[in-house]
Design a protein around this nucleic acid. Structure first.
Lengths: 236, 236
DNA sequence: GGCACAGTTCGGCGGGCACCGAAGTGTTCG
DNA sequence: CGAACACTTCGGTGCCCGCCGAACTGTGCC
């Protein structure tokens, strides 16, 4: 497959909408994606088949449902990086068309998942905190320090178990905050921990997350973060 | 700009060919790119205008020549990452159509520039050596060690001067070797050093590099690398 | 076993885009 | 100053693709 063929897969507003939705890290059904993108089931079916054949998505059948998800972390990083670069080019993408959309975009700016790690203001704040506390260093590259290794172990995150083909820590540029946040397998593990411990919970079907009261306490105690009480759709 | 619009810029074989050519890090004229891609000057002109307007390329006029280059390192990383992912999907892109193309692809596999850093077997070998010698560590992320800082200083590369918005060290997956090589500002500085000291020199107008006899000596002395004497188009 | 649901396949329709040649503009050189 | 070169603009042509409705298939539930 060539560069223009891969790019062609994403050069359509319906397929692009599917991929952006799937950046929440979850599996969606074909019907859900059709409704999300506002197209008919037949259109969705055809587009999904092309995305699967092209290697960006993976599928799984369960009874009469066809579930699809992003094929792998590299596909997710590709799509996120394209979206970040696109949003940095002048003439920004759509502004909120109505109140509901404005609320959604605000929620996503607060906290959300970026494929498998925390993003939005929460993601940036967590990244600033781990840097400030010396748990991760960016002096000579981006690496977990010895203190960070111990801290992660106290959170049940074993670095040795995370070693693999993906980088342990990677900096991911946030499209809402335009600042970096922690990605890589450590970033994913932290996100998983936050969801498991119910420090954050998902809002609806999008990528938005809400910090729970218990989460506010945990982030204060573990990282010294004072997070605002979240009011749905309201001011900080 | 949205994801599908940005992807649409690359979803055409002519524009994709332009961007791949520009991954050599140099500026090309519109006429050179037209010939490279096998299209007429008018076609090239229109495509280049779209790529510039879309933020992937930057242009500069000099007399009757229009020079274009990749807009910034992020654009280069995007294109390289897309090309790497595309090549990893089954049904590989074009195999060499003739002897000349086979020779060119072989040369690029040996050593080439990947936008601004060394890639190919040379890039991978250099990366393996700096890891083995403890100049860069990947234990807990990708970072230059204290020994590496000193070594780079002995090569006239000052880390403090390299600090900026780009990561110092970044791992870039190589599409010919399918292994990682050193990217980021340190990777770029090393490549610049190798070109300045004439350890490598460019071959023709592509991205291929040849290791010079002086370079073979330098790589052996500095990093313990035994590089084969390069025979154009021949076996190792 | 029949009905409802989820998804697939296929032919038709309309819109958009890549390409080029011709004519033009701007720059450079003899 | 005129010719040559590099590039641009624009109208025309042909091809490709996204979308959908209708008919179909497979699954699940009552």
């Amino acid at each position: 497959m060539s560069l223009d063929q891969l790019a062609g897969l994403l050069a359509d507003r319906t397929r692009a909408a599917f991929c952006m939705a799937l950046l929440d890290g979850r599996a969606w059904t074909a019907g859900e994606l059709a409704r999300h993108a506002g197209v008919s089931p037949s259109t969705a079916s055809e587009h999904l088949s092309r995305l699967v054949a092209g290697g960006l998505l993976a599928e799984e059948r369960q009874g009469r449902h066809r579930y699809v998800r992003l094929a792998n972390p590299a596909a997710a990083a590709l799509i996120e990086n394209l979206a970040v670069y696109a949003s940095s080019v002048a003439a920004p993408a759509a502004t909120p068309g109505n109140l509901r959309e404005s609320v959604r975009m605000s929620a996503e700016a607060q906290a959300r998942t970026c494929y498998d790690h925390l993003a939005g203001r929460l993601g940036v704040a967590v990244t600033d905190a781990v840097l400030a506390r010396g748990l991760v260093s960016d002096d000579a590259g981006f690496a977990v320090t010895a203190a960070g290794r111990a801290w992660l172990a106290s959170q049940g995150i074993d670095l040795a178990a995370l070693k693999g083909s993906r980088p342990l820590v990677r900096s991911c540029l946030d499209w809402t905050e335009r600042r970096h946040h922690l990605a890589g397998t450590v970033g994913a593990a932290l996100c998983g921990r936050a969801l498991d411990q119910r420090w954050v919970e998902r809002i609806g079907t999008g990528r938005a997350l809400a910090v729970t009261p218990g989460g506010r306490t945990a982030f204060r105690e573990l990282l010294g973060l004072e997070l605002p009480a979240r009011r749905p759709g309201g001011a900080e």
